[in-house]
Design a binder for these strands. Structure first.
Lengths: 188, 188
DNA sequence: GTATATATATACAGGTCTGTATATATATTT
DNA sequence: AAATATATATACAGACCTGTATATATATAC
């Protein structure tokens, strides 16, 4: 099991990275807020970059498992899952705990394609798109990849908008747009 | 008229901010690439933050004037402008000079809503959306604001995707999606 | 109670960053 | 040629950053 201190550091770093930016958050700040010391942080994470990568992994895994569980327990038909996708995403975005999507901000702060942080961000974005694609394939969509890309654009755009201004209501319109695109693709 | 050195610094900073990140680019690097010195930079810009703001302003103004000129010279009917919007945006994104949209990255690196950089980013995002909204209003779209928001989400999502991976082709699918959404809104 | 693992406290080395101070050079103008 | 504006060269102060070294404290296990 994961040490409570390690997981505390991960939680605090996730929050600080989102609210202050990754490069603007020093490890001194992280350990101060987490109520521990640098020695402990460097015991669990070999470097700040390693910490960033673990924060990204945890954030993505948490989101993906939450989302797929919501979809699996609340829908049966594949097309229903697809249509309910943005319902749950909206729920997630409008929850008070929402701080943004890790890989979107990380890729902006680490634009160099050779950076491990950038590479992980790109991989997570691809993974999410593939998950949508699998939903579309199950729902017998003809151009599943095309629809998945379009929906992921709406998703990333709305998250971006919500990161820029909390309570923007962007996801409500993304949901409407997704319904139009999905309905269109279903009748192709 | 603007000094050639000042404009050179702006051009270099724009490029470095996009390719390496804003916080990861020091003023020493900027002046070295621009072939000048720090003393000159601080003659034209009172601080790095001031330079960032001017870089953002120039980038946004350049894009907006280029886009509206393209639309005005190539289309007559308002609805035509709306439909051609993503044609030109795709052209802009796929041009070899494309380095990303300034305000999208800047808002990620400066998440604090009180930061002047964040505020300018948010304002530019709003301005762009309002421009789309004016196109939609001219084309007699019923819910012009709603469509404008949806199109801007597609736009920001596709730019985000393209920043993450050059040559992703995301804008091609954004263009298709925009056509579906616009056609739907026109027939409402 | 002694040994062992874990966490703390503190200091610091070496680097980078922004912004300024000081002195010199190069043009342009009169 | 002298005066003025503009650019350069260089050094540095003060702050912050990551990562480590050293010594101490606390808790669990045997």
């Amino acid at each position: 099991m994961m040490s409570t201190l390690k997981s505390k550091i991960l939680v605090v770093a996730t929050d600080l990275f989102q609210t202050r930016g990754i490069n603007s958050t020093g490890v001194d700040t992280i350990v101060a807020v987490a109520g521990t010391t640098k020695m402990t942080l460097y015991k669990y994470f070999i470097s700040k970059e390693n910490l960033i990568l673990e924060v990204l992994k945890k954030g993505h895994d948490d989101f993906q498992s939450w989302l797929s569980e919501q979809l699996n327990t609340n829908s049966k038909k594949p097309s229903e899952k697809l249509l309910k996708l943005f319902e749950f995403i909206e729920e997630w975005v409008t929850s008070p705990n929402f701080r943004g999507m890790g890989f979107i901000k990380a890729s902006a702060e680490f634009p160099n394609e050779e950076s491990p942080v950038h590479q992980l961000s790109a991989e997570q974005s691809r993974e999410f798109r593939q998950y949508i694609c699998s939903l579309a394939t199950d729902a017998n969509i003809k151009d599943a990849e095309g629809l998945a890309l379009q929906l992921s654009l709406l998703f990333e755009g709305a998250v971006q908008a919500e990161q820029m201004k909390r309570g923007s209501g962007a996801m409500k319109y993304a949901k409407k747009a997704s319904k139009i695109l999905i309905d269109g693709a279903l009748s192709d």
